[in-house]
């Protein structure tokens, strides 16, 4: 069943752009060792020459890549290759790690997110994140989704908040399943529902980009398929960057794929190209299962 779908996706990588992006900035190909084209025409986010250190150890080495509007970009690579680390740079979640240090330039719609003037709270509201293990707060389903809008003051009235919660849950495809149990604890849902609740929670603050760190690794195949469908739907409104261990998943959900190896970004390209015709030996070895 999954194979059929995968085949469809591989043949026609969809490129819908509902929201017209602002005028493209002047594209300047960065100086990089990465094989393939790291830039896109209309990037929402650009990263240039990013290095990340944990204390003395360098975890990310000179990575440059763009993220386009309304695309799903997947990052793959063997464990410990730095893909999760890189993802956590994009909304500065690395700030919470004492020893982590990030250099290089990461811009969201032209604004340096590591600039002193950039407010990390606002940044994270615009770049949401979904984690490997579903982490609903030990509160009710409703409160989980309402949490973001509440802290950011997005709703003036209770009715507005109710609406945001409902819309978010609908977009996350969870509304039908939980509409009668909104006041039950979010931790009581099944694993897949919990993860969709976390996605709804992110959507509720209306971000531009959603980062997903192996969102399906703790889920069973059925729940995984449900989330993958959801990711495809969400692309209508958001850019999504997904780190995944599963090459099939990358192939199924993403338009572009980036391959990381030991902190280096080895190769970037259209998902279909990377999977069918990788340029680099390392990429090919990984894709054909020689290691990883």
């Amino acid at each position: 069943m999954l194979n059929q779908k995968q085949a469809v996706l591989l043949e026609s990588p969809a490129q819908t752009n509902d929201v017209p992006p602002p005028a493209p900035a002047k594209i300047q190909e960065p100086d990089t060792k990465t094989v393939g084209r790291v830039t896109v025409d209309k990037p929402i986010m650009t990263t240039r020459n990013v290095d990340v250190y944990y204390g003395e150890k360098q975890a990310i080495i000179d990575v440059s890549i763009d993220i386009a509007y309304n695309e799903v970009l997947s990052m793959i690579g063997p464990s410990g290759c730095g893909k999760s680390t890189f993802l956590r740079c994009l909304n500065r979640m690395n700030d919470t790690i004492e020893s982590a240090r990030v250099t290089g330039k990461i811009e969201l719609e032209g604004h340096d997110i590591y600039d002193k003037k950039t407010d990390v709270v606002t940044l994270r509201a615009r770049v949401g994140m979904v984690f490997q293990k579903p982490n609903p707060f030990p509160k009710s389903v409703y409160e989980n989704v309402a949490y973001g809008p509440r802290i950011h003051g997005l709703a003036r009235k209770q009715a507005e908040l109710d609406e945001i919660v409902q819309t978010s849950l609908q977009r996350a495809g969870l509304w039908e399943e939980v509409k009668d149990r909104l006041s039950e604890p979010g931790t009581g849902l099944s694993g897949g529902q919990q993860q969709r609740l976390c996605i709804a929670r992110s959507i509720a603050v209306n971000p531009d980009i959603i980062l997903m760190d192996e969102p399906c690794s703790a889920l069973d195949p059925i729940a995984t398929a449900r989330i993958e469908e959801l990711i495809d739907e969400l692309r209508q409104n958001y850019s999504i960057v997904i780190v995944t261990h599963s090459m099939q998943q990358a192939a199924r959900v993403s338009q572009r794929t980036a391959y990381f190896h030991l902190g280096d970004l080895i190769e970037v390209g259209e998902t279909s190209t990377i999977f069918t015709n990788p340029q680099e030996k390392l990429t090919e070895d990984y894709l054909t299962g020689r290691f990883g």
């Binding site: 909304n91 979640m93 919470t96 709270v121 606002t122 940044l123 994270r124 509201a125 615009r126 949401g128 994140m129 984690f131 293990k133 982490n135 609903p136 707060f137 030990p138 509160k139 949490y147 973001g148 802290i151 950011h152 976390c198 929670r201 992110s202 603050v205 980062l211």
Partner: peptide, 27 residues
């Protein structure tokens, strides 16, 4: 209180004190 809950709250753009008061302390 697991780190994942703190991450979840911070990733939504809460400030440190909002995370502590609204997620960590209730938990």
């Amino acid at each position: 209180v697991p780190q994942s809950l703190r991450d979840g709250s911070l990733a939504l753009g809460s400030t440190q004190s909002e995370m502590i008061r609204k997620v960590v302390l209730p938990a």
